[in-house]
Design a protein around this nucleic acid. Sequence first.
DNA 1: GTAAAAATATGATTAATATCATATTTATTT
DNA 2: AAATAAATATGATATTAATCATATTTTTAC
Lengths: 235, 235
Amino acid sequence: MKKLDILCCECQNNNCFIKKHCLDTDTLTKEIAENKSTNRYFKDQHILMEGSFVDGINFVQSGRVKVFKNGLQEKNQIIRLVAEGGILGHRGLSNRKTYSISAQALSEAIICSFDKLFFLELLKKSPNLTFNLLLFFANELNHVESTLRDLSVFNVREKVAKALLSLIDSFGLSKSNNINYISDLTRQNIAEIVGLNSNQVSKVFAEFKEDKILETKGKNIKILNIKKLEQIISI
Amino acid sequence: MKKLDILCCECQNNNCFIKKHCLDTDTLTKEIAENKSTNRYFKDQHILMEGSFVDGINFVQSGRVKVFKNGLQEKNQIIRLVAEGGILGHRGLSNRKTYSISAQALSEAIICSFDKLFFLELLKKSPNLTFNLLLFFANELNHVESTLRDLSVFNVREKVAKALLSLIDSFGLSKSNNINYISDLTRQNIAEIVGLNSNQVSKVFAEFKEDKILETKGKNIKILNIKKLEQIISI
DNA sequence: GTAAAAATATGATTAATATCATATTTATTT
DNA sequence: AAATAAATATGATATTAATCATATTTTTAC
C-alpha cells in the first residue's frame, strides 16, 4: 500500500494551495509536515458532514470531490466540484461551530487535513498564506454568485449545459483516442449541480444528441461540440 | 450641507468594518483619513457597475444598498442587501479586472471608498484587518451558498417568504406605533431577491394576507407574524 | 389638489417544469 | 456468463410557474 504521509516537497500535486503559498521558510515546512494528516477515501465516502463539528481544513491531494448542501427529500444542491489541489472545509474558518456543507468523494481521493487551531496559527505566521486565501475566497464568492444568477435565470436546457460546462471547468475533459469525454458521473449528480432531477437531465441529453452536441454510452459522455454548449448559456 | 469627509473616529457608524478592525495605530488612522473619499448617492443611483473597471473598495456609512447581477431582459438577481457598516466591491480584491456585480442605492446613501492599491497595502500592514476580512468572506460564502440551495429547492411561496426574511435580516424591521414593517421596496426588488417577478410577489402577498402573515399599504409591508414566515421555509 | 404616470393586484391563459409509469440499457453480483 | 439490481430513457400526465390583460391603487409631477 502506498504510503500516504509524504512530505509536501515530495508531493506530485503542484496545484496544492499549501505547496504554492505556505512553504516560505524551513520552520513552516517542518511544522506543516508535523501537523498534516493524510487519509484515503473511497468513492462515495463522506469526507465532511453538514452539521457536524468543524475540526479542520482539508486539501485534495488527488481525486474528485463534490461539496453539497442537503435539501429536502434527497434533493441536494451541489455547491462546488473540487479537483486535486482544491480546498475543502474552508468555510469552517469562520466563527461557525458546524460545517454548512457536506463533502463526498466522487472517485477514490486522498485528502490532507490540518487541525483548525493549527491552521489559524499558521495564518498568523504567514501573511502570504492569509492573503492568498483571501484571494481564493474572493474568487469563490464570484463563482457562487454567478451560479446563483444562472440558476435563477436559466431554463432546464440551459441548466444542463451549464452543469456540463461546470464539470469540464472543474475536472477537465478526459481524453482517449482523441475523444473528449466526461466520465463516471450519474445523471443524478449532474442534475444536482443545477437543481434538476435525473429525468430532466436524460431528456435534455436526448435533445443534445439530436443537436450533435454529445453522445452517451452509460456514464461516458462524449462531448462533440463544446462551442454549442457555451452558446446555449451565453447571455 | 453636511460635511461628508469626517474622520472615522468621529463617525457614528460603529458597525463599520474599518472602525472595528483597522484603527490599531495612530499611523494607520492617519493614513486612512488621508485616503478615504466619501460620497453621497441618491436613491436608485448606481454605485458600482457590473463590467466596469475595479477602482477600489467601499464601505456603507449610511443608507441601504442592493448588490445584483444582470440577467437577461431586465431580470436581475439581487445577490446581497447591504446596510450601514457593510462592505461593497470586496470581490474586486480578487485578480479580476472588472466588477462582477452592480450596486445601487435603495435609499440615499453615504459611501466611504478607498483605492484598491491603497487598500491592498493596508492589508499588508494590518494582519488583523486581513484576518477579519477573511472571516467576513467566509461568512459571505456561507450565506450565498445557502441562498443557492434555497433558490434551487423552494417553490414560489417559499421564495417570497425567504425574500422577506432576507430583507428583515439585512435591514431589520422599522418600528412605528409598535408595528413592525418593511418599507420602501418595490415588488420588483423583492422579486429579484429570489428570482421571481413582481406579479408573483403580489399573488403570494394576497395569500399571506389571508393567512394573517402581513398587511400591505403601498410600499409599507406590515409584518404580523414572522414565526409563520420562518415556518414556511424551515426545512 | 388634481392629473398623469407608475406600480400593484388579480383573473385568465399559456408555457414550462416536475412527476409518474414503464421500457430499456448498463452495472453488479454470484 | 447468467441473474439481479441499479441507472437511464422517454411518453404521458399532473402540477406549477410565468405571462398577459386589465382594473385598481399609489405615487409623482405640476
